[in-house]
Simulated assay, not measured.
Amino acid sequence: MQHFWVVGTDTDVGKTCVTTLLMRQLQSQGIRVTPYKPVQTGEVFENGQAYYYDSTMYETYSLQPLERASLNDYSFKEPASPHFAAQLEGQQIDTKRILQQINRLQQVVDVLICEGAGGIFVPLDANGEITLLDVIMESQLPVVVVTRTKLGTINHTMLTLEVLQSRGIEVLGIVFNGDTGSAMDRNNIETILQYHPKPYAIIPQYKEFSKVMDHSITNTSLFGRLYQHDTKII
């Protein structure tokens, strides 16, 4: 079975939306899937309750029961880069612990989807010696890249793909998130695919998370890359 990372070209490109959507639509095929976000930051206060957006979205939209303790290892209150958010709370992120959890979860589910934080070069330690990219390389798992469609995405996406390629990390496909249908958005997508012809999916711009969850990508080349009808992941 194919386990993989969902990584972004930047922060707030929709990694959690895509992770949740892929989880949900793979689950709908009868596959045991769990998401795992090693580090989440930014505690949310709403209606007198505190929660973390990423793991809450997983639990809310999963079609299967999820083990809450397995959804992430580090949660920090400050909405900041993981290394700084950890530093503010006097903690350090143990990447060995993250890799051990990744290895463990691969043994108990059909598909493990690991969600990154920020872009691939986001630091995980105060000294800047370890980045998310280092953990991805250590995990030996391929990635799905999430990017925007608006102005600036060509540069951000090409840089991300070039780095992944230079490090020998397999890219399973690209998700273009937030497509407005404009001529510029469409040209941005076409230009990126011209240089990097990968399986892909396009998600339109939605104002509500629930609307994204109603959007089907099962007929896209990306989903075809991830799923076969005999329930084997390729």
Rank of each mutant, 00 (worst) to 15 (best):
Q87Y: 15
I120F: 03
Q165L: 14
S55P: 12
I130H: 02
A80P: 01
F4V: 04
D94Y: 07
R225W: 10
P204T: 00
E115W: 07
Q194E: 13
T191R: 04
T16L: 08
G178I: 00
T131V: 10
E59D: 13
P79V: 14
T16K: 11
P204I: 01
F4K: 06
S81M: 00
V175T: 09
K15A: 05
V135H: 02
M57G: 09
V7T: 15
D134K: 04
I169N: 01
D134V: 04
E208R: 13
E162T: 10
L226N: 03
T60A: 12
S139M: 03
L88P: 13
S81I: 00
Q107F: 11
L124K: 00
Q64K: 14
I174M: 09
F223S: 11
L99D: 05
V144S: 08
M137V: 13
P79Q: 14
G90W: 15
D12H: 13
Q228I: 03
H229P: 12
N155C: 09
V33K: 12
L22A: 09
I154Q: 01
Y206H: 11
Q64L: 14
G30L: 04
S28L: 07
L172N: 06
K198Y: 15
Q64T: 14
G30W: 05
W5H: 10
Q27Y: 03
T19E: 05
F4I: 02
D110Y: 09
E43L: 15
H83D: 02
Y51D: 03
L141W: 06
T153K: 04
T149E: 00
T131W: 11
